[in-house]
Design a protein around this nucleic acid. Structure first.
Length: 777
DNA sequence: AATTTTGTGATTTTT
DNA sequence: TCACAAAATT
């Protein structure tokens, strides 16, 4: 049976799906049937018959999206009984590059071997911590954090250490040294980080012409979804993969770029693409099938405030007007949560709305807290979507560490984790000695322990521990490193390994303790078993034979897992979903509450500080994304009260921009007190307590519990008292809890800069922060 | 080595 | 405020 593209799609979608332009740009607004169009375009390309489907690469933003597109393509093709020799590669940039690197990395770089693994975020943190120690920085200091940021920044821009000048006269340049050391540590551990996956791919393709030619012939068509959130290296990589015969089709919406902080550059879709491919054709999709016109009007109105954008107005399919957008105002954050909970309960009970048809979307994670408190009171089932991934849990990470040392014997961080779960009494000193012994034998630490466990010099207890570890490891290693073992055998042997090293036993104990404490979290042992299950499934899945895929193996599993986030698909349970705006991208719900529409929360105070107005535009795009998630009814909610630095909460400027004129909510019965004398009272109380501490040894305000030391007035001073009333002038003296006394040298609306004239130097402090106060002029 | 106390500082997060 | 990490304590 043939697919009737014209019947299945609207005019715009039809054009986009069936265009034979070599270079095609589809500008697809929210809810305009982008995925549907893409799936049909894939089918169209497959049916066109001039290319093998396996020569098509479709790039998605997340693994979840890749999975969905794969499923929909298969479904479409099979529902029409179309026979195909294979399927397109549908994956993220990172997965695609990894596929490439597994074939090419060792040919181009010495220092890595075939068993390289990926350094995840925790690994990265550990490496930076190690560098801080080596270079005598405090890892948590703002200075060092700034350096780490600079390294990250350089990497997202695609820079390598060689590209940067190490100018040691410039103190800010220290980061280059940190960068260099970081790359050394990664190489020592035979690891790549996420950025390296892209950077190395680009470099190999740039330098090796033969290699480039090979892959240019291998792939004929590239499709990129969410192109508005693609960054420059990713774009460069695709261009390197293409010769003049290849086709490129990108899909995106410049108004939905929300990842510029990760390098996304929406100028690519807006201008660069046209410059690079002058014959580029563009199709615009602007008929929205998701939301009612009332919702779209609000969203359109808001996004129109962004300068530097092409005008585009989403129109609702069939001009469906729908219900009015409702603004909710409350006196405080907690009241907001209670109000919305009541509203949801009423929707559920009176209007028969399923909980799972309702979502609460907010700018920042911490805004979920008040709902977590409120929902149980109203017995509303809920889930926070996408916060903690399965593979981030401690027990799963530990299990993975045991697997990683099987594959990559240079991965010392994983070995350290193995030493900790369960505890094996190996501290710094023992570790140093072991490292020395290993280097004498010219072996990695893991190899040394596993092969020469009989000759290790250490205390008997440690020797015993390591021997049993090594025996279990070796038994498993023997099986895992064989070619052509059945998946079941591998998984069984790993289960045995987990058991023998005491991993199950250890987490069983943790489970028991948690249970006795009344926690209802899931069982860690079950999660470990789930990990083995995932491995089994992966090993069983047979890959298409497209001569690029390496066979499924433990290594493949580990690489895959590193690229996976929360793969939990939305389960079918009937509960309200809470999530951030970023995570809501691509989802839709009949009822959407946007909570925390408060200036400083959304747009965030960080964005408001950006004088170039770039950040605020991105926040606006984010808000646009959030609003356009709603199908039937959209609620916008703000609250009054005060934030943690005691400023008044005012309605978000986005509400006004979207056409609502609102008054701030201010309670007369605010907990805030302006009476400075209370502050002074508590202050003097505090000092008298401190003075008398030696005499009494008890704090009368803590029910006669013995008190060790009181040195932080910020903890004693109750929250409703603050120094935010203080007016500062240049030259004022400030006393700070941890920095001592300093002098105000400059100020703006929100911050003062204080020179403490000691090792702390100049600090930027938020006005109204309780850890300091004015002493005198 | 585990628990308590103190310090800190406060987006978004995929890969 | 509140959560988390680091430091201090037993």
């Amino acid at each position: 049976m043939k697919i009737d593209f014209e019947k299945e799609l609207n005019q715009q979608q039809y054009l986009a799906a069936t265009s034979n332009a070599q270079y095609l740009r589809i500008v697809a607004g929210a809810g305009t049937g982008k995925t549907r169009t893409l799936t049909f375009r894939l089918a169209h390309l497959i049916l066109r018959g001039d290319i093998d489907p396996r020569q098509i690469v479709a790039i998605t933003f997340t693994n979840k999206a890749a999975k969905e597109m794969r499923e929909r393509t298969v479904k479409l093709i099979s529902s029409y009984d179309i026979e195909v020799p294979g399927l397109p590669l549908i994956m993220t940039f990172h997965s695609f590059c990894l596929l490439f690197l597994r074939r090419e990395l060792v040919n181009h770089y010495t220092g890595f071997n075939q068993n390289f693994t990926i350094a995840d975020e925790d690994d990265q943190k550990d490496y930076f911590k190690k560098i801080a120690d080596e270079m005598k920085y405090t890892p948590s200091s703002t200075e060092f954090k700034e350096y780490i940021n600079m390294v990250h920044h350089a990497k997202t821009e695609g820079k390598k250490v060689e590209d940067l000048v190490l100018d040691l006269d410039n103190p800010k340049n220290v980061y280059v040294k940190i960068f260099q050391r970081y790359q050394e540590l990664l190489a020592e551990a035979n690891q790549l980080d996420f950025d390296d996956i892209l950077i190395f791919t680009k470099e190999i393709l740039t330098k090796d012409e033969a290699c480039r030619n090979f892959y240019q012939r291998r792939f004929k068509v590239f499709m990129i979804d969410e192109f508005q959130d693609t960054n420059n290296i990713q774009y460069d990589i695709v261009k390197k993969f293409m010769n003049e015969e290849c086709e490129l089709c990108v899909v995106g919406d410049p108004d939905q770029t929300i990842y510029t902080w990760r390098g996304a550059n929406n100028d690519l879709i807006k201008n660069k693409l046209k410059r690079d491919f002058p014959s580029l054709e563009t199709v615009t999709l602007d008929i929205n099938y998701r939301s009612s016109q009332q919702i779209l009007n609000i969203a359109n109105k808001l996004i129109a405030n962004n300068t530097d954008r092409e005008e585009k107005n989403l129109k609702a399919f069939n001009n469906r007007q729908g219900e009015e957008v409702e603004v909710i105002s409350n006196l405080s954050q907690d009241e907001e949560a209670n109000f919305i909970a009541r509203k949801i309960k009423s929707l559920h009970v009176h209007d028969d709305v399923k909980y799972s048809d309702i979502a609460i979307i907010y700018r920042s994670n911490f805004l979920s807290r008040s709902f977590e408190k409120a929902f149980p009171k109203f017995s509303i089932p809920y889930e926070i979507y996408g916060s903690k991934g399965f593979y981030q849990r401690e027990e799963v990470k530990s299990g993975l560490a045991y697997l990683r040392i099987l594959v990559n014997d240079a991965d010392e961080l994983s070995l350290l984790r193995v030493f900790k779960y369960p505890r094996r009494n190996i501290g710094e000193k023992t570790l140093d000695s072991l490292r020395q012994q290993a280097s004498l034998k010219n072996k990695t630490l893991i190899k040394y322990i596993m092969e020469d466990y009989g000759q290790i010099e250490a205390t008997n207890k440690v020797k015993e521990n390591l021997t049993s570890l090594a025996l279990a490891y070796n038994e498993c290693f023997k099986i895992v490193s064989l070619d052509d073992v059945e998946p079941k055998k591998i998984v069984d042997s790993i289960a045995e390994y987990f058991k023998k090293v005491g991993l199950f036993e250890y987490f069983d104990k943790v489970d028991e303790e948690n249970l006795s404490k009344g926690s209802t979290g899931d069982s860690k042992v079950d999660n470990l078993k789930e990990l083995l299950n995932a491995l089994k499934e992966y090993l069983n899945s047979s890959f298409q034979d497209d001569n690029l895929e390496t066979p499924c193996s433990l290594i493949g599993f580990l690489l895959n897992v590193a690229l996976l986030s929360d793969q939990d698909q939305l389960n079918q349970e009937d509960h309200v979903l809470l999530m951030t705006g970023h995570i809501s991208k691509g989802l839709e719900f009949p009822y959407v509450f946007i909570s925390g529409m408060v200036e400083g929360y959304f747009p965030s105070s960080h964005a408001l500080e950006d004088s170039k107005h770039r950040a605020i535009q991105e926040e606006r795009r984010l808000c646009y994304v959030m609003m356009t998630r709603a199908k039937k009814k959209l609620f916008l909610s703000y609250f009054g009260g005060r934030n943690f630095s005691n400023d008044l909460n005012l309605p978000s400027s986005f509400l006004k921009e979207a056409g609502f004129n609102l008054k701030p909510k201010i309670s007369f019965y605010s907990t805030y007190k302006t009476d400075r004398s209370i502050y002074n009272q508590i202050d003097s109380l505090y000092s008298s307590i401190n003075k008398n501490l030696d005499n009494f040894g008890y704090d009368p305000y803590y029910q006669n519990k013995p008190v060790k030391k009181i040195n932080s007035p910020s903890r004693l001073v109750s929250s409703n008292v603050s120094n935010s009333q203080e007016v500062y002038n240049i030259g004022d003296k400030i006393a700070h809890v941890s920095y001592g006394v300093g002098e105000v040298i400059s100020q703006n609306e929100r911050f003062i800069e204080v020179d403490f004239k000691n090792e702390h130097g100049v600090k930027k402090l938020a006005k109204g922060f309780k850890a300091f106060k004015k002493v005198s002029k």
